[in-house]
Design a protein around this nucleic acid. Structure first.
Lengths: 226, 226
DNA sequence: CATTATAGTGAACACTTGTTTACTCAATAT
DNA sequence: ATATTGAGTAAACAAGTGTTCACTATAATG
């Protein structure tokens, strides 16, 4: 399933043209192969911290020693994955910004969009969910930082779009922080949904919508403490 | 640090009286030693899924093969830990029920109590945080179930104490579900607090209080959908 | 074209891992 | 008092682990 079925090794040197920096481009290519290998190994539900270096290189079609040309550690690879997750999350925000929010049923449609997004990028969310609490302290902290960046960006967007215009910025950040943890938690649930059970999916979605509604209901009657 | 410093092995056979079922009592004692060993190994911040069977037995002061007298698997040990976490959580609720809530500043004092509780039982919360997203699918599901039990019990308590009397039960469950995930998330943050940084702790606490206030503010203006 | 830098190889290393086997020997049951 | 049971032991196993080293071959540099 992983070894090296006659093709992947030869593919390491691009058969067609390798236009710009063929040399460093190839390096980054195997780097991505390593990252993808780790993500693939987690697709069965295993957590990141249970992966071994050799497994990852095997899955990537590369000899163990080659790993050290890219990362000094599995931890370092994990940090790279955290960054990739950050990019993925920011893309979600950017898309939402671009297409604007539908006038009615904002919450429900946002949830549906998010649900699809999680499913499309399930590998990244799976990693984030697994390493958020289970990874090494360094990775945990990195994820925490990425999440708060995301929350702050979201707050800024709400300010820009003139949603909840009467609330000060720190209140918006509070709200978005809560929304983000709720989103991440929902992502874990979405990922573990049994495929043959559409009823469970409906319930989960409904619950998620109502949790968000609850939060924004609170936001409407929020007033500065003190 | 772990081996067997001349005392623990001999302690296996109770030096004093072993009153009731001395045999099965001894068995349960080593069983608890195994559970504690796993918890101890996680105290440095490592996730449960990175533990090995041999490490656990070593830390417990027991030979590897002895493990199988108690669990068939590390997974099974994990499930036992999940149950222990459930007991811990239920004790929190029971204490809260018993002493009743202080009339004013309910939220803030509850948060302080919770914060202390997390610190006192940090080993269980550490495990829960690490296995919630990172463990095997079985363990994840078990934790999810335990959490929802906890949320439902909390909702029932609120009903009994006549808090938010106008809300139907399913709304209470929704609210408590959100509160529980917020609590678990806060627990992770509390556990990773740097000890020499009282300022960060204050901020975290404040943020936690305000998140809960936001939720209950939403609850006050909640009305049944449809 | 000749030189150099380096991404990836292959083999070896010293360990650790999970699991099985035959065993001991004390608490129970007869 | 004797037989049985079963919790914990000791040793061995095949397999997997992280890391190192000298190496090859090719893209980049002069």
């Amino acid at each position: 399933m992983s070894a090296d079925p006659a093709g992947s090794t030869s593919a390491r040197r691009g058969s067609a043209a390798a236009p710009p920096g063929s040399r460093s481009a190839q390096k980054q290519l195997t780097r991505e192969r390593l990252l993808n290998a780790a993500l693939n190994l987690m697709e069965t539900g295993r957590g990141f911290s249970s992966l071994s270096l050799r497994e990852v290189t095997r899955e990537a079609g590369v000899v163990p020693a080659a790993f050290y040309r890219h990362f000094s550690d599995l931890d370092e690879l994990g940090l790279a994955l955290v960054e990739a997750c950050g990019v993925t999350l920011r893309r979600l925000l950017r898309d939402a910004r671009r297409q604007g929010l539908p006038p009615t049923q904002i919450l429900r449609s946002s949830v549906l969009i998010y649900k699809n997004y999680v499913k499309e990028n399930h590998r990244y969310f799976r990693f984030a969910a697994s390493a958020r609490g289970g990874g090494s302290p360094r990775i945990r902290k990195a994820i925490r930082i990425e999440e708060s960046h995301f929350a702050n960006e979201m707050a800024q967007d709400m300010r820009d779009m003139n949603l909840m215009p009467k609330l000060p910025m720190d209140a918006l950040e509070l709200i978005c922080g809560l929304v983000v943890t709720t989103m991440m938690n929902a992502a874990t649930d979405i990922l573990d949904l049994p495929e043959d059970q559409p009823q469970a999916e409906k319930e989960l979605t409904e619950n998620f919508v109502m949790q968000l509604r609850l939060i924004f209901l609170g936001a409407r009657s929020w007033k500065q403490p003190g």
